[in-house]
Amino acid sequence: MPGAAPAQEGSNSVQPRSEDLVGETVADRPSAYYRFETHALESIDGKRHYRIQIGIPRTHAPAGGYPALYMLDGNAALDTLGDPDLEWLSRRNPPVLVAIGYDVPTRNDVVARAYDYTPPVVENGRPVAQPVVRGRPGGGADRFLAFIETRIKPLVRARARVSGEESLWGHSYGGLFTLHTLFTRPESFSRYVVGDPSVWWYDGALMREWEAFDKPRATGKRVAILVGTKPHEGGRPAPAALPIQTVDGRTLDSRSAAREMAAGLLENAAQATYETFPEQGHGGMLRVSLERALQIAAEPKAQGLIITHHPNHSSQ
């Protein structure tokens, strides 16, 4: 298993630890296994400023190039990774690590990610100009995906020799974006790792995309969905428990919807997994799912598994 850092169990809030300052990370320390470089980019409209940190293995590139792992919430991802993770990767098929973060001193820019990571919304056949959830405008996921494809991927390919084995990892809103990418542009990545996705966002808008998705387009894709099921602490219900209405009138919550998505993908020849972690709440799933993303990105080739539940799954 990658690294030695345990999954950090924190609040079950939707944006855990977002305002925590990020100090020195693996990208700032000398390493025998990876070298990191930092690039500054900004959105076309100049409203969002990105910190792209690229970790390139010090091992010789394979004949076809390194695989690559694109990590959303890059500040938080690098704040979560440890030197043992890099050492673990170096002994396998190490991927280029691409941390897509924001140019802020904290783990997240919650306003920017609320826009970038959430899908456009259509109601009554018309697009919603500015879908707002919890006071934050959203709906920019298509623009952000285009930014990844036209700005970030070319930058990575110019800095490192990479293959076509590209993975995308996201947690929470990042998991929402990862599934949106799979359902709208599945060719963008070959492997998708999803941690505790915010399927509940905007009354389950992602569910509309899933129901409209031509499932055979996911054939051969490696998709891992990981969900924490520890009961929510506090007076209000966890967002994952909020009801989502399907087109056929059924009522689901985020976890049930995610499981249904995994099952549907598996039925259509995707290499899909669905795992539950009863000992983890929303915050702890960031480390758990990122750890799984490292494992999957380092696989020499996609490996199909079945949908599983782990009543006593250890994240160590």
Rank of each mutant, 00 (worst) to 15 (best):
309 H>K: 03
26 V>H: 00
197 P>H: 09
102 Y>F: 15
135 G>C: 02
224 A>R: 15
31 S>P: 06
45 D>T: 00
307 I>C: 04
266 L>W: 11
246 T>S: 11
56 I>D: 10
79 D>M: 03
152 I>D: 00
227 V>C: 09
27 A>L: 05
116 D>Y: 00
108 N>I: 13
170 G>Q: 10
29 R>D: 07
193 V>W: 00
285 M>C: 03
99 A>K: 03
242 L>K: 12
4 A>C: 05
80 T>E: 02
171 H>W: 11
63 A>S: 11
211 E>S: 04
44 I>Q: 14
299 E>Q: 06
25 T>W: 06
204 G>D: 05
11 S>E: 10
118 T>F: 08
70 Y>A: 02
90 S>F: 06
69 L>G: 02
136 R>P: 07
40 A>K: 15
134 R>P: 06
268 N>P: 05
176 L>D: 06
17 R>F: 12
67 P>K: 04
98 V>D: 02
38 T>M: 12
83 D>S: 14
49 H>N: 12
15 Q>Y: 14
200 W>Q: 11
116 D>C: 02
108 N>L: 15
107 R>K: 12
238 A>I: 08
215 K>P: 05
99 A>I: 07
88 W>C: 01
279 E>F: 11
96 V>W: 07
107 R>E: 09
110 V>I: 14
168 L>A: 04
259 R>P: 07
182 L>S: 03
172 S>C: 10
15 Q>R: 14
61 A>G: 11
227 V>R: 07
133 V>R: 13
200 W>F: 15
112 A>N: 09
52 I>Y: 02
275 E>C: 07
100 I>D: 00
34 Y>R: 01
142 D>R: 13
218 A>M: 00
236 R>H: 13
85 D>H: 03
303 Q>P: 08
112 A>C: 04
280 Q>D: 10
102 Y>W: 09
66 Y>F: 15
244 I>A: 10
307 I>R: 13
163 S>P: 07
243 P>L: 08
316 Q>E: 14
116 D>H: 00
157 R>V: 15
119 P>T: 11
258 A>Y: 05
68 A>L: 03
248 D>R: 08
76 A>W: 14
266 L>D: 12
236 R>A: 14
221 K>S: 04
191 R>G: 11
210 W>Q: 10
5 A>M: 08
314 S>Q: 10
211 E>D: 05
155 L>I: 08
1 M>T: 08
252 L>E: 12
24 E>H: 08
243 P>C: 08
26 V>I: 07
12 N>W: 13
125 G>C: 02
119 P>G: 06
48 R>Y: 07
223 V>A: 02
283 G>F: 01
60 H>Y: 04
253 D>Y: 03
46 G>P: 00
89 L>H: 09
67 P>V: 02
283 G>Y: 02
113 R>A: 13
25 T>Y: 07
240 A>W: 11
303 Q>V: 15
38 T>F: 11
113 R>M: 15
46 G>E: 04
316 Q>F: 12
108 N>Y: 15
307 I>V: 01
118 T>A: 06
103 D>K: 10
271 Q>L: 14
13 S>R: 14
223 V>F: 00
235 G>K: 14
134 R>T: 08
223 V>D: 02
129 A>L: 12
131 P>Q: 06
187 E>M: 07
2 P>I: 04
23 G>L: 07
254 S>K: 10
58 R>F: 12
264 G>V: 03
56 I>M: 10
135 G>S: 01
206 L>V: 05
299 E>M: 09
